[in-house]
Each structure stands twice: as structure tokens, then as C-alpha cells.
Amino acid sequence: MSADIQSNSVTITNEEGLHARPASLFAHLANQFHSQITVTRGEESVDGKSILSILTLGATQGVQLIIRAEGLDADQAVQQLSQLVESGFDV
């Protein structure tokens, strides 16, 4: 099976934005997948498995992000990560 590429656009809904705790949850989940994961805000793309990189995006409420995954479990990764963001990190 060849590597799959998936991507999805999501909007930050929770009030506090992508600060330490949510970013931590995101990176934690991203690390569960084998795929390479990038998060893009505007023209800036960062490693979705690195909490620091995610934090430096400075994504506040209302900001739109593109989650992109490349790898065998890309489909699952994009789906679960999108769900996490859209739920307002309510886990």
C-alpha cells in the first residue's frame, strides 16, 4: 500500500485558542500516528508533533488551520485531529 496524503481545514473554536494545554493534547494525539503531520496557518507550516512548533503558530479563537498528514494512517490522523480541534479540545 502506498503512502496516503490527506488534509482538512478546521477552525479553532475554544475560547483560549491553541495554548499550552490544547497544543499539548494535539501533539500528544499526533504522536500516536505514524504519518508525518503538518499544521498550517496562512503561509506558516509547522510539525504537528512538536508542541513548541504548534504553540508558535499563535492560533487564537477563530483562526483557521489546515491539518495535513502523509503516511499509512493519514486518513485516520486527519480525522481524529480535526475532531479534537472541532470539539474545542473538550476531552
Binding site: A20, R21, A23, S24, A27, H28, D47, K49, S50, I51, L52, S53, L55
Partner: peptide, 16 residues
């Protein structure tokens, strides 16, 4: 406790 989890993750962040 969550804030410490975040600190921990920063510390273990491969980029850093």
C-alpha cells in the same frame, strides 16, 4: 495538573 503535562511535552519536544 494539565499545565505540567504541557511543560513536560515542551521539554520532550523533538524540535527543542
Amino acid at each position: 495538573g494539565a499545565i505540567f503535562a504541557a511543560h513536560l511535552q515542551m521539554l520532550k519536544d523533538p524540535t527543542l
